[in-house]
Design a protein around this nucleic acid. Structure first.
Length: 420
RNA sequence: GUGGGUGUAGCUCAGUUGGCAGAGCGCUAGGUUGUGGUCCUGGAUGUCGAGGGUUCGAGCCCCUUCACUCACCCCA
């Protein structure tokens, strides 16, 4: 038997209504906040991700699906959406007409990691990006949007963690202080952290090894090395969130795995998914547009783990609403089946949820099937009904029946059923 | 990439010291001629994840492999 590849999965018909529901709610919020949908390719030149996400990150180093196409170009299945949206923004010179743009997109991303609960090799993200606004109010607005989405989905127990990573102005000073601090504790740090010291010292801050945690107590934080501008920016983000009643905690261990972030970084965490605690994450990336060849335009964005969100919402959904047809047609005999089929298509076209069975089985088994399908009504059509011009319409809930004429059964059925 | 757990019917799972593959649910056909859910009776269904090995004999023991799962790592 041929199966899905590892870490890839089918989202089955039983699950898709939940996905649609979440996407609809998200789209509505985005629309209210002035976001437009953008759709971007699923593959890009590898260089785009290498340059934006950062050569030394885990994503680029070991998680991307990268392969040569038939002409030898190096292509990569997108591991995230931001790079493509930035590329699109630059490629189409969107900044020329109006640098301020707000986009969202929904779709699959690909990372070759070891699969786990809430972590798949093809996973879905709801992604939002804002270009051209440097103001901290937008940082707060994005976090508020996430907050609002989770609220409308009925979720609680989610917490926004925020931090500021500083900017090219203040980061060198911080890095120097951090490196000095780390060097003095080299003998207690784990191998991983020693490696991080070389490549990206920031990352040592969120090491989970207990010994490292202890050694890092009192380590310099980005927060107390922020330059005046970054500091003011972060203060405004916080005061705005407070004014908007969005709960958050300042978490100075929050460091993100992508190189392009600057200033505000945030994650929404849950305890509902074991080790996969991040449901959404994002941050500001004021230098990226320029680094990828565009003008100097600030930007900020976030990504929501769609699969994870579905898992969490499913955990609290008690019972799924039944979605059986309004009418199930039971045809007994060839003539009846022909009539029923023609009526069925008229009913379907008129907007009624109707179904029928073509197997030619007994009345009893067709009734069973109607019941299993959760049909609200059944129309029984056999030779006798046709002969006496009295079709039987049975209400499955009340177990009552009425007869209707064959003159214009479709109109009569529509009238009767919509009255119920 | 590293470590632990699990793969037996469509689903959830039993399966003893190695000795004829099972249950519940579901599916299906009936329970006096054409009326569903409850109830009763009968029926079908398996490459025991895959490949190799040990053995007279393997679902069970050994090796390999694939997948799922949990954790590390990392992230959404």
């Amino acid at each position: 038997m041929i199966q899905t590849i590892r870490g890839f999965r089918d989202i089955l018909p039983e699950e898709t209504p939940m996905w649609q529901k979440i996407e609809t709610i998200a789209a509505e919020i985005f629309r209210n906040f002035g976001f437009q949908e953008i759709r971007i390719p699923i593959m890009e030149k590898t260089e785009l991700f290498a340059r934006s996400i950062g050569e030394a990150t885990d994503i680029v180093e070991k998680e991307m699906y990268t392969f040569p196409d038939r002409k030898g170009d190096k292509l990569t299945l997108r591991p995230e959406a931001t790079a493509s949206i930035v590329r699109s923004y630059i490629q189409h010179k969107m900044y020329a007409a109006d640098p301020v743009r707000k986009f969202y997109t929904v779709g699959p991303m690909f990372r070759r990691e070891r699969p786990q609960k809430g972590r798949y090799r093809q996973f879905y993200q709801i992604d939002a990006e804002v270009f051209g606004i440097a103001s901290p109010y937008i940082d707060a607005q994005l976090i508020q949007i996430l907050n609002e989405l989770f609220k409308r989905l009925g979720l609680s127990g989610l917490k926004a963690h925020i931090n500021s990573l500083g900017c090219p102005e203040c980061r060198p000073g911080f890095q120097k202080a951090l490196l000095e601090f780390l060097s003095a504790r080299k003998d207690v740090l784990c191998d991983n952290c020693l490696r991080r010291m070389e490549k990206n010292p920031l990352r040592t801050l969120d090491c989970k090894v207990p010994a490292c945690r202890k050694a890092l107590e009192g380590a310099p934080t980005t927060l107390n090395h922020l330059c005046p501008d970054c500091s003011t920016h972060f203060d405004t983000v916080q005061s705005t969130l407070k004014a908007q009643n969005v709960e958050f905690v300042v978490d100075n261990t929050l460091v993100r795995g992508l190189d392009y972030y600057s200033r505000t970084a945030f994650e929404i965490l849950t305890t509902a998914l074991g080790a996969q605690s991040a449901v959404a994450g994002g941050g500001r990336y004021d230098a990226l547009v320029q680094e990828l060849g565009g003008p100097q335009i600030p930007a900020i964005g976030f990504a929501i783990g769609f699969d994870r969100l579905v898992h969490i919402v499913e955990q609290l959904e008690q019972e799924k609403p039944k979605d059986g047809p309004d009418l199930f047609l039971v045809a007994l005999g060839d003539k009846a089946m022909e009539n029923c089929h023609l009526w069925l298509s008229q009913l379907n076209l008129s907007g009624l949820k109707a179904e029928m069975d073509y197997s030619g089985k007994s009345l009893k088994s067709l009734m069973k099937r109607a019941d299993k399908r959760n049909a609200r009504n059944v129309l029984i059509v056999g030779d006798e009904e046709i002969k006496t011009d009295a079709l039987v319409l049975r209400n499955m809930e009340t177990r009552t029946q009425t007869t209707i004429s064959m003159d214009d059964p479709v109109a009569e059925i529509t009238k009767l059923i919509s009255n119920i």
